[in-house]
């Protein structure tokens, strides 16, 4: 994945993407045990107008560097990479406040545990709730920080429902 992340940094250096961060299962893997997943979710801030947003320049850039499209992803050094625009306020904040990491000499950014939990809660599929539960059980997040994020993005009721369904069991 080192070379994959290096290519994403090249996209940034070329001005095709703004700030970016690893999210999804590979983001969660930073804090939890390894999670089986097929692709690498890269959340990206685009500085231009969202109305004219297209991923074509990214795909073209990577294609010129020998990375072919694979379904809705681009295969970059063995990893199917999905570029996801950080369009909502929550996603944008998650990218902006991501942690800087060094991945075997390549700089990368990973969303915080608290943002990953909030995004999973908002996404709301079964596997997302399971992931939030894993974060809780592993005590891998800061409660105050998480509640701040949930409050800012109108997710307190969703968290209450999650607690009632999965944490406050009789």
């Amino acid at each position: 994945m080192r070379d994959t992340l290096s290519e994403i940094n090249e996209l940034r250096a070329a001005g095709l993407i703004g700030q970016w961060a690893i999210g999804g299962a590979m983001g969660a893997t930073f804090y939890l045990e390894p999670i089986s997943t097929y692709d690498l979710d890269i959340f990206v801030i685009f500085e231009g107008s969202p109305l004219i947003l297209t991923l074509t320049p990214i795909y073209d850039f990577l294609k010129e560097r020998g990375h072919a499209a694979e379904g809705d992803a681009v295969l970059v050094h063995g990893w199917p990479v999905q570029f996801l625009p950080a369009e909502s306020a929550l996603l944008r904040e998650a990218v902006e406040q991501a942690s800087e990491i060094d991945f075997e000499g390549v700089s990368a950014r990973v969303m915080t545990a608290e943002h990953l939990m909030a995004i999973a809660l908002q996404t709301g599929r079964g596997k997302d709730f399971a992931r939030v539960l894993t974060f809780v059980e592993a005590r891998a997040s800061n409660n105050a920080k998480r509640h701040g994020i949930l409050a800012r993005h109108g997710l307190e009721a969703a968290w209450k429902r999650f607690e009632d369904n999965y944490l406050n069991l009789p």
């Binding site: 893997t29 939890l32 045990e33 390894p34 089986s36 097929y38 991945f103 592993a138 891998a140």
Partner: peptide, 23 residues
């Protein structure tokens, strides 16, 4: 699980890559 969580990120990524290959 705790031992796996404590591994360095690159090590965890290699495990994910192996799981993916097995899949």
């Amino acid at each position: 699980r705790k031992r796996l969580m404590a591994l360095p990120y690159p090590e965890k990524v290699r495990i994910v890559e192996k799981m993916r290959a097995a899949g």
